[in-house]
Nucleic acid binder design. Sequence first.
DNA 1: GATGATTTGTGCGTATGTATG
DNA 2: GCATACATACGCACAAATCAT
Lengths: 222, 222
Amino acid sequence: MKEFSIEKPIPYYEQFYHSIKKMIFDGTYKPGERIVETQLAKQFGVSKSPVREAIRLLEKEGLVVVDDKSRVMVYEPTLKDVEDIYYCRMALESFAVSLTVALASDKELNEIKTALEEAERAIQRGAEASEIIALNAKFHRFIVQFTKNKRLQKQVDDLKSLTQFYRILHFQDQNRASIILREHQQIFGHIRSRNKEKASQEMITHLEHDLAHITQVLQQMT
Amino acid sequence: MKEFSIEKPIPYYEQFYHSIKKMIFDGTYKPGERIVETQLAKQFGVSKSPVREAIRLLEKEGLVVVDDKSRVMVYEPTLKDVEDIYYCRMALESFAVSLTVALASDKELNEIKTALEEAERAIQRGAEASEIIALNAKFHRFIVQFTKNKRLQKQVDDLKSLTQFYRILHFQDQNRASIILREHQQIFGHIRSRNKEKASQEMITHLEHDLAHITQVLQQMT
DNA sequence: GATGATTTGTGCGTATGTATG
DNA sequence: GCATACATACGCACAAATCAT
C-alpha cells in the first residue's frame, strides 16, 4: 500500500510550454511580438535547451511561428486565417453536436442546461467578462466532451486556442453576451428535443455569427 | 539581380523531424516501438539537442508518445483511436467536399477527374499498391485543396498521418482498390453535378466503409 | 533481493556562425 | 567593418531507471 504517491518532477520543457502558452493567452506576449529564447531562459533562470523544446511544441501547435531566419514570433492570424479556423470549427462542432444529440444521457444534458442557467444569472448580475467567457466555453466544451471522442476534443481545443487572444474582443459590445446566450439556448433546445439536423445547423449559424462579429471588430481595429 | 539564391541551411531538428517521420511511415520504426534519442543522435552523428527538438515536434503531432518515465514510443492507436480519427475526418472531409462543390473551378474538377482516370488505369494494369495508394491520396487531397482553406488541409493531413501505417493493410484484399475507386467516382459524380448534400453524404459513407475495413483487418491481426 | 554497472533522459555552459545596427 | 545579439549545436555532468551479477 502506498499511502503517499511519489511526486515525479515535471520536466522544465513541459512547464515552460504551459507558462509561455499562458503568457500568450493573457497578453504578456501579444500577437506578432517576438519571443527570444535567450531572454526567456534568463528570465526563468535556466538554460536554453528546455526553452527551445517548449518552443518546438508551441510551433507545432501553431501558437508561435518561426520565420526564415529562425526568429520566433507569436502567431498573428490574418483575417483569412480566422475565417479558415472558424470554418474548421463549424465542420467539427456541428458534427459534434449531432453526435451528442445521439449519444448524450439525460444527466449530461442537464449539465449543459446548468451551464446555461449559470451563464444567464452571471449576465443578469453583470459579472466580469472573463466569467461569462468561461461559462460560454463550458457550453461548447460539454457538447464536444459528450461525444466521447478525445481526438475531436483535441482538434477543437487546438483550433480555439489559435483565436483565443481575440475572445475578449467580443465583449467590447455589451449586448454580445446576451446574444450568445440566446443562440446557445437555441442550440440546446434542439439537442434536448433530439433533433440532429436543427441542432447542427444552429451550431453552424452560431459560429457564423461569431466569426462575423470578430471579423467586424478586427476590421475596426485597423 | 540574384541569379543564384543562397541556400539557407535547414536546421538539424527540422531535418530529423522529417527523417524520423519517414522512418515511422516506412516501418523502420513500428507502432509501439521505442525511440531512443541517444541512439538516433549517434546514428546520425550529431548531438542530442536537435534530436530532442525533433521529437518534441513529433510529440505534439501525436506520432510519438512520451510515457510517464519520459520514454518515447511510436504512436500505436487503439481501435477506439482509429474510430475517433475517422469520425474527425468524416466531419472535416464531408465539409470540405461540400465547400469544393461550391468553389471549385471546372479546371480544378478536371484535375480530380484526371486523378481518377490515372487510378483506373493503374488498377487495370495491376500496378504496385503504393502507386494506387498515392493516386487515391491525390483524390482526397485535391478535394480539400480546392476549398482554399489551408487550416483545413493541415487538420486533415495530421489526422491521416496518425493512421498512415495502416494504409497498406487495405490492399491485402485484392478487390479493395476497385471498391475504393468506385466510391471515389461516385463522390466525383456528385461534385460534378454540384450536389453538395449527396457529395458530402457519399464522402461520409466512403470513410465509414474505409473505417469498417481497417477495423476488420486490425481485428484479424490480433 | 541487494548492489554495482550500463543505459538513457534532463539540463547546463560554451563555441560557432549569422544577422542586425 | 565592427560590435552586439541571437540561434544552432555540441559535449559534459547529473540523476533516474534498467540490467546483470
